[in-house]
Computed example of a mutant assay.
Amino acid sequence: MPTTGSGLLLLVVLLLPGLTFVALRERRSSERRPTAFRESGAVVFWSVTTEFVTLALFAVVRSLLPELTPDVGRLVREGGAYVREHYVSLGWWGAGLLAFSCGLAAAAAMRAAAGRHPSGMSAWWMLFDGWYPGENPMVGCLLEDGSYLEGRQASFNVSADDSPDRDLVLVQPLKYRPPGGTEARPLPWSAACVSARRIVTVFVSYPLAERAVGAGEEGAAGAAGAGSGPAAG
Rank of each mutant, 00 (worst) to 15 (best):
E85C: 04
V12Q: 09
L8P: 01
A56W: 07
V44G: 08
A56Q: 12
L9M: 00
T3H: 08
L143R: 09
T201W: 11
L64Y: 12
E210H: 01
P186K: 00
L57K: 07
L8W: 10
P164W: 13
A220F: 10
W93M: 02
S122E: 07
T50F: 06
S147L: 05
L75Q: 05
A106W: 00
A209Q: 13
P133N: 11
L16G: 13
S47C: 11
D71P: 06
E26W: 10
G146F: 10
G233R: 02
N136D: 06
R28T: 10
R111A: 11
E183I: 04
A221Q: 09
V13N: 09
G130L: 08
P207E: 07
W131F: 13
S29H: 04
A212V: 03
S89R: 05
R152H: 13
A220T: 11
L64R: 10
E39L: 03
M138H: 04
S205R: 10
L90E: 04
L14I: 10
A226W: 06
L97E: 12
D162S: 03
D71L: 08
V48S: 12
E51Q: 14
P2K: 01
M121Y: 01
L98I: 12
S122L: 09
K175D: 07
Q153N: 08
A106H: 02
F37L: 13
E26G: 09
E150A: 06
E39H: 02
W124M: 14
T50S: 09
E31I: 12
S190Y: 07
A215Q: 11
T182P: 04
G233F: 13
R197E: 15
L143A: 00
D129R: 11
R166I: 15
G96Y: 05
L75C: 01
A113E: 02
G219Q: 09
S63P: 07
A56S: 11
K175M: 04
E51H: 14
R177G: 02
M1P: 04
T54I: 15
E183G: 00
